[in-house]
């Protein structure tokens, strides 16, 4: 193990489920409002996983009230309280950018049964 990896490994989390593009996940993030801290959930389809080591991120896309929104989370951030997989998706690409151009029934991802 080289030195960079050994530094990064101290900051990396392992307490999240395996998930990838196409899966619908629920991300619980810690939000600080003044002194109070609360947990906010964000649920949607994972459209990409990017980078490695402590810099790993993933992007979740959801369509709320007809408006598409995407949020990119740093996977190993302490502000991410937990991640859970709601549904596994069957997709043939690593990056699902094509979902941005689709709406309604066309924007669905087939379910992967396990």
């Amino acid at each position: 193990m080289n030195l960079i990896e050994s530094v990064e490994s101290q900051y990396m989390k392992s307490d999240f489920p395996e998930f990838g593009p196409g899966d619908i996940v629920r991300v619980n993030t810690r939000i600080r409002e003044g002194q109070k801290e609360r947990i906010q959930a964000y649920e949607g389809t994972v459209i990409r996983r990017a980078h490695g080591g402590t810099r790993a991120t993933f992007t979740v896309r959801r369509v709320a009230f007809g408006t598409g929104s995407e949020r990119t989370f740093p996977l190993h951030s302490p502000n991410i309280e937990s991640i859970s997989v709601v549904r596994y998706g069957a997709v043939r690409r690593a990056k699902l950018y094509y979902l941005r151009d689709r709406t309604g029934r066309a924007a669905r991802v087939k379910e992967r049964r396990i």
Binding site: V7, E8, T54, R55, S77, N79
Partner: peptide
């Protein structure tokens, strides 16, 4: 050795250089 990033307790990510 190179650069990477680490997290502070409050979730801030900070750029760091690793030196042997």
């Amino acid at each position: 050795v190179g650069m990477t990033q680490v997290f502070e307790e409050d979730g801030k990510s900070i750029p760091v250089t690793v030196i042997e």
